[in-house]
Amino acid sequence: MAAAKTVSRILTISGILMMVVGGVGFIVVMALNAFVLDEFDAYGEVPIPGSGELQLPAGQAQISFHTSVTGSPSSGFPLPSLKLSIIPPEGVADPVLTENHGTLTTVNSDTHIRVWTAEIPAAGTYKIRADGQVNGYINPQIAFGHESDYGYLQWVFAAVFGLGLVDLIGSLVLRKASHGNQPVALITAPPLDSDASHPSYVPTDQGVRLEQLKTLSALRDSGALTQAEFDAEKRRILGE
Score class of each variant (00 low, 15 high):
3 A>D: 15
6 T>F: 15
7 V>H: 03
8 S>T: 08
14 S>D: 06
15 G>N: 01
20 V>A: 10
24 V>A: 11
25 G>L: 03
26 F>N: 11
28 V>T: 06
32 L>G: 08
41 D>L: 01
48 I>W: 02
50 G>K: 09
51 S>V: 10
52 G>S: 02
57 P>N: 05
59 G>F: 03
61 A>H: 00
61 A>E: 04
63 I>D: 01
64 S>H: 07
65 F>C: 03
68 S>H: 08
68 S>L: 07
69 V>R: 00
74 S>G: 12
75 S>V: 06
79 L>G: 05
83 K>E: 15
84 L>F: 09
91 G>H: 03
95 P>V: 04
101 H>G: 11
101 H>M: 14
110 D>W: 11
111 T>N: 02
119 E>H: 11
122 A>F: 03
125 T>K: 13
137 Y>T: 04
139 N>W: 05
142 I>K: 00
143 A>Y: 01
148 S>E: 09
150 Y>D: 05
153 L>A: 08
157 F>T: 05
159 A>T: 15
160 V>I: 14
161 F>W: 08
168 L>F: 14
180 G>H: 10
182 Q>G: 07
183 P>H: 00
183 P>T: 00
197 S>G: 05
198 H>P: 05
200 S>Q: 09
201 Y>D: 02
202 V>H: 08
210 L>E: 11
210 L>I: 09
214 K>Y: 08
216 L>H: 09
216 L>D: 07
218 A>N: 10
222 S>L: 09
222 S>D: 12
223 G>L: 02
225 L>C: 03
231 D>E: 15
233 E>A: 13
234 K>C: 04
235 R>D: 07
